[in-house]
Design a protein around this nucleic acid. Sequence first.
RNA 1: GGCCACGUGGCGGAGUGGUUACGCGACGGUCUGCAAAACCGUUUACUCCGGUUCAAUUCCGGACGUGGCCUCCA
Length: 490
Amino acid sequence: MTIRLHNTLTRQKEDFTPLDASKVRMYVCGPTVYDYAHIGNARPVIVFDVLYRLLRHTYGEDHVTYVRNITDIDDKINARAAEVAAAKNISVEEARVEITTRTTQQYFDDVTALGCLMPTHNPRATDYVSGMVAMIATLIEAGHAYEAEGHVLYDVSSKPDYGKLSRRSLDEMMAGARVEVAPYKKNPMDFVLWKPSDDLTPGWQSPWGRGRPGWHIECSVMGGALLGDSFDIHGGGVDLMFPHHENEIAQSEGAHHDHPLAQIWMHNGFLQVEGEKMSKSLGNFITIDELLRSEKFGERQWPGSVLRLAMLMTNYAQPIDWTVDRLSEAYSKIASWFVSSFGLTPSTELPVGLIDVLSNDLNTHEAIKILDALCDGAARDPEGKQLLCNALYFLGISPEYEVFKKFRILLREAGSGSELSELELVAKIQDELLLELGVGRQWVDEKIFTRAAARKAKDFKESDRIRDELLAKGIVLKDGPTGTTWEVKR
RNA sequence: GGCCACGUGGCGGAGUGGUUACGCGACGGUCUGCAAAACCGUUUACUCCGGUUCAAUUCCGGACGUGGCCUCCA
């Protein structure tokens, strides 16, 4: 099966042919670790995790290298570090390490909860500073960069195809430029490769004095060090296309004799929250951590699998409006899938067509349709059940206790007489829910027993009264052919 | 202001030059003492205006709308 991917460079869907099929290489821009990752940060992580899984399936697990960097040198980090250093009376460097170490761990915890595999490499910028210095020196030597007032700047006019990714010409950019131009720049669009640090700012020694690398050079160096001068796929958010990715291309290709940095550039779409741009001032800024572990959004916690599915319901390149309704829809879908595949152990056999639709530029929505179809037929098709389980595992959507509990869905299944071996889990969930409602199992059983007698005597008035009494406590009764069962009201 | 995307039924959201995707919801039915759940069925769409075509939601142009980037907020 040929994988087809939309390439931003050509604006077309292309057949994907790895430079070396025994060593497929992908780079995705990772987080700047100064604070909790927000839900917008989660999208590329999830999208490219699915692509990583597809590539591993197609080319073999040992033949795919996935690099996602950790940016731990950055002026936002430095600003935080200065605050923390002042508050705790520690050095700026100590504060920087503390912030980036803690935030990196939070990030890993978050994306793990979202069902994402660990990339092959998670390079930190701080480990690659010498490589950055070397690349900058190479760029100066090649005539692509110049030193000015302690800064080293990339000379965009030295690269005639600058702007090829975002399809902007230098003239257009300068005409539309709104920024005040630093006086030491030859060209307004020249961007910084190295900048000087004062004594209160983290810095490293270099031929141009003590300073720190610019943002763009970090990715060029880490990608080059771990994947080589040219690799297969470079991914990231559409917002990074300009200037970040454009500058990465200029740096890497400028330093590597114009060898193309990446064959295919992929960009995921932006996220809005309830119809508005996410921002701290609007108060709709929401982190992955808050969704997973607080009730800030929609007054409930959301399991990682639900967030993952909500993200994959839409094509990766399209914008997403992140709403409570969307998450609720994902929640009910997840719940029915988990029930249908409950208790099974995943194997490697995948449903027909799943790899095909994913290979078509990651058509995750078509994949969801396949899962829905399997789920529909699950009651009378044990093989379909197993395939559903396998597909969920493949897509990184693993059953979570929280889903079963919060959605009360297993209780319904158990009550309807299906053959569930894990009745203990059901009992455990029931007990927890009853505890929350403040009623005892025995009390419920007695009420049901009394009501059964009333029904037998055709005293429906009394029978309905008891049902309402239980409903008031949050317990819904259901009369089936084998007797009365109950579930906690959702 | 410049550049780039996108605009499908109540909502989410694929896809296609001609054969009303699909999911959720809603409505109807079966079942039930009545319900609930489950199952079966029905229901509505392609922003607007031109053009190309035998035929356009699908191709081209324009308008309007939404969003992104140009400002190291993904």
